[in-house]
Design a protein around this nucleic acid. Structure first.
Lengths: 223, 223
DNA sequence: ATTCTGATTGAACGAGCGTTCAATCAAGGT
DNA sequence: ACCTTGATTGAACGCTCGTTCAATCAGAAT
């Protein structure tokens, strides 16, 4: 029935979903390189190897393409997080460790993606969009981390822990480490940043964490 | 000699330095409101109550005005920091506390100013400019904090402190708290953020700090 | 008063860029 | 073969700014 694509010829048409993916990927790279203030539709099109008209055909406007780019980035992070949340085989400390690992995973904490996050954070014109798209996720994740801290406190018999305050600190430290990685990528590597996170956890939950990760010998099972 | 300015009439000319100040202030506000991607010379001029021509007269270009705006913000922070560094009456812990206080001082950690910092961080097109202008200061301050941590470690008899790692953590936490204050200003107030900083210090140097600030009863002497 | 200097204005200009759309093409259905 | 549908192209269009500059003005000096 369906003809196999002619082997050597590059297909000149593709389903909408693939073109959208290509354009979002190109937009991601261009935002990381030129910033939201400098991005041009012609640059994105050239990067994707497609014509400018396709942007408006598949996204109706440049602004919409940017919005979808942000949404795509958020979905990726959310999916990773949901997978952790729903994993019944993980105990409290393991979930917390998995969340932290997720934030500094090589597929997430790439220079390009971090730059795009901060581009949307940093530009007041797009910040409303960010809050609209990521705000719910931020608060959900916040609540989850707080619940985990609280469980660890009661289960582990830790006193004097303020779960809410600690959650703020954990998230802020993660954000700040991301910023450092972006500004001085040669000076702070994701691996090192991850260690700073676990050192913080180790000061609060010394019987569960070390600077390396989980205190109990256990390899990461999560991608 | 010099005529006193006519009392009720608003002066129609002013020295270059004052106009520059006015325009930088207006630019700061407009960047915070519209972002670097949305800023227009006409908006800045209107905000300052002056005409567009003056921007090019006093700054030669929009880009240059933005660069000077960033420089002005940096100078302010630097001045505060230098004053602390040179204050002979402060001991090690006091200096560290003063640096932290400086980062969350009401004149520094305003929503507007934080937004401008992140605007320059976040836009790849201006990030080179940021590094050029603030990079030296960043490394100087980093070195100073590390030296203070190291002193506190030896003077205070604290073991197992990695001054370099701790410095990274301190700075990253501060940056991350700034980000949280910007994204969710109603949820995280500077006062609260400051407390998170001192709680971190208290976990590392418990005989010198509490979550409130310096462990030894002592009011801030630094503005 | 007159002149000189530098500040100030804002309309006009022109480059840059997002968007449109008529024409073309690929591929599947009949 | 022919038709239909949807993808694709990129030149052309028009709007949005950043910049310029001739004209005006304020204030000081002579």
């Amino acid at each position: 029935m369906t003809m196999p694509t002619p082997t050597t010829t590059r297909r000149r048409t593709a389903p909408s979903s693939e073109r959208r993916r290509q354009l979002i990927e190109a937009a991601t790279e261009v935002i990381a390189e030129t910033g939201l203030s400098g991005i041009k539709t012609s640059d994105v099109a050239r990067r994707a190897g497609l014509s400018v008209g396709l942007i408006n055909h598949h996204f109706s406007s440049k602004d919409n393409l940017l919005a979808e780019t942000l949404r795509h980035l958020g979905d990726e992070l959310r999916a990773r997080w949901v997978r952790i949340q729903q994993d019944e085989t993980l105990d409290t400390a393991e979930k917390l460790a998995a969340i932290v690992d997720g934030m500094f995973h090589p597929n997430v904490a790439t220079p390009t993606k971090i730059a795009v996050w901060f581009a949307f954070f940093g530009d007041a014109g797009y910040r409303a969009l960010y809050r609209e798209m990521a705000g719910d996720f931020d608060t959900e994740r916040s609540a989850a981390i707080e619940a985990l801290c609280h469980s660890l406190k009661t289960e582990g018999g830790y006193d004097g822990i303020d779960s809410e305050a600690l959650t703020t600190t954990i998230e802020a430290l993660a954000d700040g480490l991301w910023l450092s990685m972006m500004l001085y990528p040669d000076w702070l590597l994701p691996q090192e940043a991850r260690r700073r996170m676990f050192e913080l956890l180790a000061t609060q939950f010394p019987r569960h964490f070390t600077g390396e990760g989980l205190g109990v010998a256990r390899t990461d099972r999560l991608a």
